[in-house]
Nucleic acid binder design. Structure first.
Lengths: 119, 119
DNA sequence: TCCAGTACCAACCATTTTGTAAGTGTAAGA
DNA sequence: TCTTACACTTACAAAATGGTTGGTACTGGA
């Protein structure tokens, strides 16, 4: 069995958080456990299906913990594990950068939209 | 025209670096300008087509600068802009985390591969 | 009795992303 | 003369990811 080897540490992080929604899910869980519906409202544009799927993958990978309160209607909460928290800590500087450069990035996104309209 | 609004700074970062290969491209350019072939060899598993495409997008977004030496055969180098460098700085802690947790992540990846074999 | 709420599933479909292959032009070297 | 190298393009195909819809079960409230 060949050992998985990453060229650099970044590949390892991307292997865990590389999904489209995963960084945002982990980010929102950094402030405390959340129910599925809460996450659905917090994560912009995510569909229910993809939220559930990525949560499942994050749980399988040991990044989040799923807590089923065994009630009806169902009450489920997701929280970060220690492993997940260590990942969430990495996201803080990204958030700060994004907040500082919000205007620049917004311009870039709008410029892309304009270019797309022309093609 | 509606203004692009991000729910959090992380969305802004993902809007720029969210492509599959973009974080790795920016990471490798952090150590200095590179030619296309060099990047191809450094970025694990990337196809030529996707490398070129993501480089183009990063150049369009002002993250990298493309330098054409106007020779034959062609000699082109890519380097980070100041904007790109500020992004690359964000990746350093991710690399460190990934290096520290290399073994854990490798196990996760291998466990996924085993689960996939069973389904 | 009916409806809302919750969390999730499965089937099917759509979209996006990626990969492969063949091609371009031209200087330099074999 | 032919081949190699470079960087990139285009067309087509494949794979991956994502979205929609209808469904499940069951308590509690209207």
């Amino acid at each position: 069995m060949t050992e998985t080897n990453f060229r650099c540490g970044l590949e390892a992080v991307l292997a865990i958080l590389g999904g489209k929604w995963k960084p945002l899910i982990v980010y929102h869980l950094a402030s405390g456990s959340k129910r599925t519906g809460q996450l659905r409202r917090l994560v912009t544009n995510v569909s229910e299906k993809m939220l559930i799927q990525h949560l499942k993958e994050l749980a399988d990978d040991g990044v989040v913990r799923r807590i089923d309160f065994q009630t009806v209607p169902p009450h489920v909460e997701y929280e970060l594990t220690d492993f997940g928290r260590s990942l969430a800590e990495l996201l803080a500087p990204l958030c700060e950068w994004g907040t500082r450069h919000n205007a620049e990035v917004a311009m870039i996104v709008e410029k892309r939209a304009r270019v797309e309209e022309l093609t």
